[in-house]
Structure formats: structure tokens, C-alpha cells
């Protein structure tokens, strides 16, 4: 196995294109576990951390849109330490900050979490709910795609030969908007989500929800975007939250495994939907106040 640390995106593309059995290394918190256990035996490791921009969090304001760009090698701990990003996207950051331990936080990245293509990645649902765009660089140039276009099936992505993700873009939101992510795990830390749920919503001046999106993790082969119209037009009162919960439970298509049962995951999808929506709503109200 070779270890390579390209200095530019083009060099990285060339290395990845030249060796289809190469793997990208950013935080390494999944890659190294798989390497050690013998689940993968790549012929090369391409460490993208030394490429300019990969470790940056920047606020963009371009004709294509304004928002936050997070480099592919930004650790989740660095996201949590970025006051501006935390204020703008508390739900995205809290999802990212739930991955693993303090130690894992120091290394793991949202992009790695996404490209792992596991159904339960904690940072993915909030990215989906936020309408984030993923920037992919490859031999044929750069493209921006919706989050859910990256994972195809558990462990499998849509990235083609020579392609890798360079950043995540979170579009700017109005002031009276916010998001939240909740997951259910058996312990208080260190577990993979049994169910994850993100809600992103926008309020009008009266506190009525004008737009909402929701996504669920760990209840299907990949993260699911779920219709959140049940709370649009409401003030997140109990009846509309119950309707949102019912929509989440209905949309969940989980499996029975060592982490949970179908019935449990469906029930808890609804519970988390309600609770996450309440938190997002409170945050959005606070933001607009």
C-alpha cells in the first residue's frame, strides 16, 4: 500500500484516477478501522488534508448563492468550535458533533461520514434537511450535487473514478429559520444512531412555520427525506407535531438488527421528529426575536 499526500485537487484527482483501488483519507476514523480489521485492502491512501481549502470553513457570498462552505477535511470538532457556523446551522453542527468520542471528533469529517454511505451517519440527516450541496471534483471538472445523490446503497457512493468530495455548502437561511438534529442511542455517547432525525424550518414574523424539511437516518438503506408539510402553516402545536410524527413513523422503513427492531425504530422516528421540530422551532423563534 502507498501513502500519498497531494497538495492540489488536480494532483489528488490524478492519483485517484490512476489507481481505482486507492482510498481517500481525511479524518480516517472509518477508513482506519476498516483497514485494521481487514475489511478493505486498498493499494493506496490519498491524504487530502494538505490540499488548500480542505480544512477551511468560509462564508461565501457569490452570485450563485451565499452560505457556508466547509472543506472536506474539516474535523467535526473544528465545526463545533466555529461560532459563526454554530449560530447559522446549529442542527448541522450538533449532528456532526455527535459522531464518536471527543477523540474521534478531533479527526472525523462530515464528508467522510457522508461518503461512508452508511444509513446511520449522524451528520447526514441535518445536511439533507438543510438542502446542502456537495461539491465533487473529478477528471471532468467540478459538480455540485444534493446530499442524497452521493450515497447509493449502504457502503456505496455515486462517485466515479478519480472523483472525490472537496466541500459541503450550506445555503444561507433567513434569520427566522433554524434546525435541529436528534438521534436515539442506547447509551449517552459512543453509539451508532438507532434512529436519527433532523428538522429544518423557517418561520414568519408571527411564528408560523412557512417552510419545513425533515430527514431520517438509520431507518432505510440511506438517509430519507420525509415530507414535513404537516407543520407548515402551524406554530408547531401538539396536533401538527403529532401529524409530523405520524409522517415520520409512516416513512420509516427500517430493518431488525443488533441495534434495534423495526417497531422500535418506527415509533422512535415519530418521537424524535416531534422533539427535533420543537427544538428547531424554539431556535428559529429565538433567532427571529
Amino acid at each position: 500500500m502507498k501513502f500519498q499526500s497531494p497538495q492540489t485537487v488536480d494532483d489528488a484527482i490524478a492519483m485517484l484516477a490512476a489507481d481505482t483501488n486507492a482510498r481517500v483519507l481525511a479524518g480516517g476514523t472509518d477508513l482506519l478501522v476498516r483497514l485494521r480489521s481487514g475489511h478493505i485492502s486498498p493499494s493506496a491512501i490519498v491524504d487530502i488534508k494538505h490540499i488548500s481549502g480542505m480544512r477551511d470553513i468560509t462564508q461565501e457570498d457569490t452570485p450563485e448563492g451565499s452560505g457556508w462552505r466547509i472543506g472536506a477535511a474539516v474535523s467535526c470538532a473544528e465545526m463545533g468550535e466555529h461560532a459563526g457556523l454554530v449560530a447559522a446551522y446549529p442542527g448541522v453542527v450538533e449532528g456532526a458533533e455527535l459522531i464518536g468520542s471527543t477523540q474521534v471528533q478531533g479527526r472525523c469529517t462530515m464528508v467522510g461520514n457522508l461518503c461512508n454511505a452508511g444509513p446511520a451517519g449522524d451528520s447526514v440527516p441535518a445536511m439533507v434537511a438543510a438542502g446542502a450541496l456537495i461539491r465533487v471534483a473529478g477528471p471532468n471538472g467540478t459538480r455540485d450535487v444534493p446530499v442524497l445523490d452521493i450515497p447509493v446503497a449502504p457502503g456505496k457512493t455515486s462517485l466515479t473514478e478519480g472523483e472525490f468530495v472537496t466541500s459541503v455548502f450550506l445555503p444561507a437561511r433567513p434569520d427566522n429559520a433554524s434546525d435541529a438534529y436528534l438521534r436515539f442511542i442506547p447509551r449517552t455517547e459512543m453509539d451508532i444512531a438507532v434512529v436519527g432525525c433532523a428538522v429544518n424550518l423557517t418561520l414568519d414574523a408571527q411564528g408560523t412555520v412557512t417552510a419545513a424539511s425533515m430527514s431520517l437516518g438509520a431507518v432505510g438503506p440511506k438517509v430519507k427525506q420525509v415530507d414535513a408539510s404537516a407543520i407548515v402553516g402551524s406554530t408547531c402545536d401538539d396536533a401538527s407535531l403529532d401529524a409530523l410524527a405520524a409522517a415520520a413513523t409512516e416513512a420509516a422503513t427500517p430493518i431488525d438488527d443488533k441495534r434495534g427492531t423495526i417497531a422500535f425504530r418506527k415509533d422512535v422516528s415519530g418521537v424524535l421528529a416531534k422533539r427535533a421540530a420543537k427544538i428547531a422551532y424554539t431556535r428559529a423563534k429565538g433567532a427571529s426575536a
Binding site: 501513502f3 483519507l25 479524518g27 480516517g28 476514523t29 482506519l32 478501522v33 485494521r36 480489521s37 491512501i45 491524504d47 474535523s75 470538532a77 464518536g100 468520542s101 471527543t102 477523540q103 474521534v104 478531533g106 479527526r107 459512543m190
Partner: peptide, 23 residues
């Protein structure tokens, strides 16, 4: 060897990490 126990904790550039998850 999977970042679940923390017994290999070290600092790299001042950042707390599991040394089993760093090459």
C-alpha cells in the same frame, strides 16, 4: 483498534485523537 476505547489517546498538534485512528 477502532476508536471505541480511548486507551491510545494522544495529542496531535494539540488535538486529542485516538492514535489507533491516525496513520
Amino acid at each position: 483498534a477502532s476508536g471505541d476505547c480511548g486507551a491510545c489517546s494522544v495529542l496531535v498538534d494539540g488535538r486529542l485523537v485516538c492514535s489507533c485512528l491516525v496513520l
